[in-house]
Computed example of a mutant assay.
Amino acid sequence: MNTTALIRPAWTPATIALMVIGFMVFWPLGLAMLAYIIWGDRLDGFKRDVNGATDRIFGSCRKAGSWKSHARTGNVAFDDWREKELERLAEERRKLDETLAEFDAYARELRRAKDQQEFDRFMSERSRNTPAPTEQRKPAKRGKGSEGLLDDV
């Protein structure tokens, strides 16, 4: 670690002041500064260890994730069987995806037909319940002095 830095993991006036200000502003900030003062010198090693571990994990995932590029085991019969099984599974997956798409289209058409039936029923009930538009209202009698003020609706 650089010992000339103003903010370094040590009990310096700057780090103590930042810790106190952190506790006054928002207590987790002060706690984080305290943790940095106490364990900050271990951060480089911790970071190196974490990076190494994640590289190993994701490296193995990268190898296992691509089933078409599996390394040959040396047993030709097993490798051929594995390739055939993986191709069969891929074909099954494709068939399942096609069946799912067909079912989604079928369900969508059923919903559309049901919605159309409900709409048609609503429109027929509405037309039975509303008066015919050809009926005319009888004009209201006008009283004396109401001529020309308001038209009857």
Score class of each variant (00 low, 15 high):
G143R: 15
E118K: 03
E125D: 08
E109N: 05
D115V: 01
E135N: 06
F119K: 11
R111T: 06
E147A: 15
K144C: 06
T130M: 12
R112A: 13
E125H: 02
N129M: 14
A132S: 14
G145A: 05
R111A: 10
A113S: 11
Q117I: 10
R108P: 03
D120I: 04
P139L: 12
K144W: 13
G148W: 05
R142Y: 07
E125M: 01
S127P: 00
T130H: 07
Q117G: 00
R142H: 07
K114H: 07
S146L: 14
L149Y: 09
S124P: 00
E109F: 05
Q117C: 02
E109T: 05
N129W: 10
K144M: 10
S124N: 07
E135I: 01
P139M: 10
F119Y: 08
A132R: 03
R108S: 15
R121N: 12
K114N: 10
Q136K: 13
E109Q: 15
P139T: 07
K138P: 01
K144D: 14
Q116R: 12
R126E: 00
P133Y: 03
A113Y: 05
A132H: 04
A107C: 09
R137M: 07
M123Q: 08
Q136E: 12
N129T: 13
P131V: 11
P131C: 06
S124G: 02
A113P: 00
P131R: 15
D120T: 01
R111N: 08
R142L: 14
R137K: 13
M123V: 07
L110K: 15
P133F: 01
A132I: 01
M123E: 02
A107Q: 14
G148T: 12
T134D: 10
E125Y: 00
D120M: 04
R111Q: 07
N129A: 15
R108E: 15
G143M: 12
G143A: 15
S127T: 14
Q136D: 04
R137F: 09
T130R: 10
E147H: 14
A132L: 01
R111K: 15
E109A: 15
G148C: 07
Q117M: 09
R128I: 10
E118Y: 00
D120Y: 03
S146I: 05
Q116I: 03
E109P: 01
E109Y: 02
Q136A: 08
M123W: 02
A132K: 04
G148M: 09
L110R: 15
